[in-house]
Design a protein around this nucleic acid. Structure first.
Lengths: 141, 141
DNA sequence: ACCAGTAGGTACCAATTCGTAACTTCGGGT
DNA sequence: ACCCGAAGTTACGAATTGGTACCTACTGGT
């Protein structure tokens, strides 16, 4: 902990903001800073479920991402050793991205998050249905 | 899945960007959109480890956050039912924030992420030390 | 001859974000 | 009398972000 009187620090304050002068050093800081990036989890999830893929393939799957973003995200993930980049200098160059072993260590957490997310979603849907029904009863009285 | 030809979707593309027109509906989408917010995990972690706290207390602990950000983040977390806000209209008003049951469901994942983060950190440190030693050997030859 | 696709890099531009500063209300300390 | 703190809200402004368009080099299809 570099800042005084702070014993918690999980994500990062400026969150990829260039400043982050005294970047509080906490276990979750780095990892969340990584997963937090826009599109990041899409990409990781995709690489996990569809296996190693080429740039264009990935771009087609992660609907809506721009080449710039995808490149930038992949470079970041590569720098974090979560993704491996294989470059083949064939004439139309062929670049394949895959999860590294470290990248696969997140499978577990990702799955768990997905499970929680799904549960909440169904719970919320049930609650909404409940409230809608209640409102209808009230309106019909 | 609202967008065609997309079977993956985890975080959100514009990531809290107001657009998000066709917000791809995926289990992790909502949850990560939440945790991804700047400071968010700091706050959750803090509320978990230090229990219910008042606004000022929280602000003092989450070093560097501005009142505006803290307010905004807490409102968002409240909206997501992860945090409960207790307002007492005493003369200096007293507002206490605490994790809801739903908020506590993340404890597990947070702990796991922290564990992975810590492991990676030590691994990286070990690797750096290794490389430094190797470089020194080479320089001394 | 011309366009598409591969895997990007670069410049520009709009929008969003986040911090700072000022304001609120009320009571208590000096 | 004056300022501070509680817990914000609001306005303003500066910086970052991320999309679009255009560029690369090379080849295969029509």
């Amino acid at each position: 902990m570099t800042t005084p009187a702070s014993d918690v620090s999980v994500a990062s304050p400026p969150a990829s903001k260039a400043k982050a002068k005294e970047s509080v050093t906490c276990p979750m800081d780095f990892i969340l800073r990584m997963l937090m990036g826009p599109w990041t989890t899409y990409i990781l999830y995709n690489l996990r479920t569809h296996g190693p893929q080429r740039f264009g393939e990935l771009k087609r799957r992660v609907t809506g991402i721009s080449a710039k973003m995808l490149t930038e995200r992949l470079r970041t993930l590569e720098g974090a050793s979560l993704v491996k980049r294989d470059y083949e200098a064939t004439i139309p160059p062929k670049v394949t991205y895959s999860l590294t072993q470290r990248g696969h260590e997140l499978d577990d957490v990702m799955g768990r998050l997905a499970e929680i997310g799904t549960r909440w979603e169904t719970e919320d849907a049930a609650n909404r249905a409940m409230r809608a029904a209640a409102a209808e009863l009230k309106a019909a009285e």
